[in-house]
Design a protein around this nucleic acid. Structure first.
Lengths: 135, 135
DNA sequence: CTTTACGTTTACGTTAACGTAAATTTTGGC
DNA sequence: GCCAAAATTTACGTTAACGTAAACGTAAAG
């Protein structure tokens, strides 16, 4: 069984962020910890939300973007209208994600080239030395 | 032959950014336009740099990050020390890019699920209606 | 020659996402 | 029952990446 609750510093340590950041996320309505007296107690759901927010941040999404994405997973939507709206949100988000993946692949290809050139240059240098030695 | 120079508003229009943004990039040393009197004239190289900066922005890189990445393509480095240093920079960058691609793939998988659920819900609804009709 | 459109410099303003610090509880351990 | 560690609230500060506005130059068109 997963632990039922977490303290703020537990989560801060696990994710490598500060408690300030977690409280800031609460201010923005991204998490809703319970209270035990004064102390905040985070549920596994809160923990997951923080994880998803940090994932979003890694690819340059704003907190608001992440919230919208997370909300897609929690379908409070029942009627046809809202379902269609949700589907089109999904499609939009997918489009930008695909663009981002293309950007990343392009950069990776560029890095491969750079490394190739570096290693060639280093290789030639070693060969030169080896050549002079042999002579 | 590609055009030899561009005005600031040509580039701004092409990339969907403002002239202010382009001048800001110059302040930060990201581009180095020529001058014809007072007016800035951008070379194809400047144009490419802006393109790469915008690509970086799309995946959440800072301008400084983009500059460092772009500099990898312009190898002023001759000695072995610098070549090794460049290679390790390349490796670091590749690591974060791979993490980002994984994040994106995870999100895309999540979106697929959401859409699946939506379409199932809509499908059932249509069947319901069709069912009542048939009766 | 005077609009009209584009370009320039200078400078203050704005927003997101926290950092940092101070003052004040709260609490688990001895 | 006390103390140090951890938590809380409040509030001002910071950085990146531009936005916005004012005040001015210039050049081609009518």
């Amino acid at each position: 069984m997963p632990k039922q609750t977490y303290t703020i510093s537990e989560l801060a340590h696990e994710f490598g962020i500060t408690t300030r950041t977690i409280r800031f996320y609460e201010e923005k309505g991204l998490v809703h910890p319970l209270r035990e007296g004064q102390k905040r107690l985070y549920t596994p759901a809160d923990r997951v939300r923080i994880k998803l927010i940090l994932r979003g941040k890694r690819i340059g999404m704003t907190l608001q973007d992440s919230v919208e994405l997370i909300d897609m997973y929690e379908p409070q939507r029942n009627n046809t209208r809202q379902l269609h709206s949700l589907i089109s949100s999904v499609k939009e988000r997918r489009t930008t994600l695909l663009q981002q993946r293309k950007d990343i692949d392009d950069m990776l290809a560029g890095l491969d080239e750079v490394q190739e050139l570096c290693e060639q240059a280093l290789g030639k240098r070693r060969n030169k030395v080896a050549g002079t030695k042999r002579k």
